[in-house]
Design a protein around this nucleic acid. Structure first.
Length: 435
RNA sequence: GGAGAGGUGGCAGAGUGGUCGAAUGUACCUGACUCGAAAUCAGGCGUAGGUAUAUGCCUACCGUGGGUUCGAAUCCCACCCUCUCCGCCA
């Protein structure tokens, strides 16, 4: 959520910056709502002040044993008007809030201006495109031939966009998550957390998934009390529960930065992506991800983002996978983000780079919704900056290993750093399951 | 699932219809004392918003949402959460 003070003081400036990301801010409507709000709020507060002082007078007069019918009649009238005007005020503030919650974050000044993915800027390439002296297979063919990847059974159990992993592949999937967690906790200073996968609407609102992106989520209805219904939502990323740990908190300055890593499943409805990436593990309703989340001092957030990006890159480097880092342009960054770097891993069968991590600085955008603050040097509460990134998406990393580490006979050379997590196994072959 | 207790400022903890935005303690800040510190003493110290610049004035906030009332932290209703005991359970 943007700071309404900034909209009030520099509406044109905000509109101009949002325009770079293709968002049209309705400045006329905002201006109208603000003018009305101002008038109604001033009137409301006047009436409230009158009611308060008159009520005090009644109390004092009663204490002296005087008659209060005249003044009570007058206050009753004030009360009548208040009742009506308060409804108006609530409606106006609701409309403003709704408008505010619908505004995306302002891109940082350094973000390249562009319309779409095509305008993203490549920052660096690490490693080299692997060369094969045989024709490469894609991960689906490799996985199925190994006997470890089964989409038909998954479709029977659940439907499209689910998968069943078996044997060595299932184990490698688990090994990857363990390896990532260990690296981030042992070498990068993150605290591992285990968090709920079902969260309430407040948490989804806090990180920006609600109210705008409800169709992307799986909602789990839940009966509360006699008649009330309150929803749970399946998390689309660990960012949601982990970032919400600091909702409504004031973190002591000396505890910053907070650095958390969580391995969780992620659930996405993929509404609107029908037909995209239907083959294989790339786009699933349920997938695993190791997520890095930091809550930092505003002065430190861009340095912290650079570090976090590096932490994610280390995983690919240790696995020996070729990748590139891309800076998303204004037209491609996510709703809540001020700056985003994507890490894209090389997939030989697709002959292209595919996103495997997305690292963003949200500045105070999430913190403002969350009321996530720290006590600054002056002792005053101040909004934190939140940053996060995948470190990495486990399923897509598995895809990358299958395709990049494949051998002519269809076996997979297991990256050295994973071997200890797989009982010393060096090669994944058909028929070796149960190991 | 059953029974009970409770949710108030950073923390602890008073407060059952009017001068309560809230006692008191503690933490924190400033000053005095001191070579310095501790102790002691004095003062200050919530958040958000409005107005617009006035060391000003005003509003809202005592788990959440409704209600009663001229007036609600306080009374009524619903819900949420925490704790204790019993039952069930991985």
């Amino acid at each position: 959520m943007l700071d309404i003070q900034v909209l009030r003081s520099d509406l044109a400036g905000v509109a101009a910056r949002l325009a770079t990301r293709g968002f049209v801010l309705d400045t006329v409507r905002f201006g109208e709502l603000e003018t009305q709000r101002k008038a109604i709020q001033v009137r409301t507060q006047e009436l409230q002040a009158r009611r308060n002082s008159s009520s005090k007078l009644i109390g004092q007069a009663r204490a002296r044993g005087e008659d209060t019918t005249a003044i009570m009649a007058e206050v009753a009238q004030v009360g009548e008007e208040l009742k009506q005007i308060e409804v108006q005020l609530a409606r106006l503030q609701g409309a403003l809030q709704e408008m505010l919650e619908g505004l995306p974050n302002m891109p940082h000044d350094s973000v390249p201006v562009g319309k779409s993915e095509a305008d993203n800027v490549e920052v660096r390439r690490i490693g080299a495109v692997p060369v094969f002296d045989f024709s490469v297979k894609d991960h689906v063919e490799l996985g199925e031939k190994l006997g470890g990847l089964d989409f038909e059974t998954a479709a029977k159990i659940s439907g499209a966009r689910f998968s069943v992993l078996k044997g060595g592949l299932a184990r490698m999937h688990r090994a990857l998550a363990q390896f990532m967690l260990d690296t981030h906790t042992d070498s990068h200073g993150y605290t591992e957390v285990y968090v709920p996968y079902l969260v309430n609407a407040d948490s989804m609102r806090g990180t920006g998934q609600l109210p705008k992106f409800e169709e992307d989520l799986f909602r789990v209805p839940r009966q509360m009390g006699e008649s009330g219904e309150q929803n749970f939502y399946l998390i689309p990323t660990a960012e949601v529960p982990v970032t919400n740990m600091v909702r409504d908190e004031i973190v002591p300055l000396e505890q910053l930065p907070l650095k958390f890593v969580a391995h969780t499943p992620c659930f996405r409805s993929e509404a609107g992506s029908a037909g995209r990436d239907t083959r294989g593990l790339i786009r699933q309703h349920q997938f695993e991800k190791v997520e890095l989340v930091q809550m930092v001092h505003p002065d430190e957030s861009y340095a912290a983002l650079a570090q976090l990006l590096g932490h994610a890159e280390v995983i690919l480097q240790k696995l020996g996978l070729h990748y590139r880092v891309v800076r998303l342009c204004t037209g491609d960054i996510g709703f809540s983000s001020a700056t985003t770097y994507d890490i894209e891993v090389w997939l030989p069968a697709q002959n292209t780079y595919r996103e495997i991590s997305s690292c963003s600085n949200f500045e105070a955008f999430q913190a403002r919704r969350l009321q996530a603050r720290f006590r600054n040097a002056a002792g005053k509460p101040e909004l934190l900056h939140t940053i996060n990134g995948s470190g990495l998406a486990v399923g897509r990393t598995l895809v990358a290993i299958l395709e990049n580490c494949q051998q002519a006979d269809g076996s997979i050379a297991i990256p050295e750093v994973l071997q200890s997590y797989m009982g010393g196994m060096k090669v994944l072959r058909a028929g070796l399951f149960g190991q």
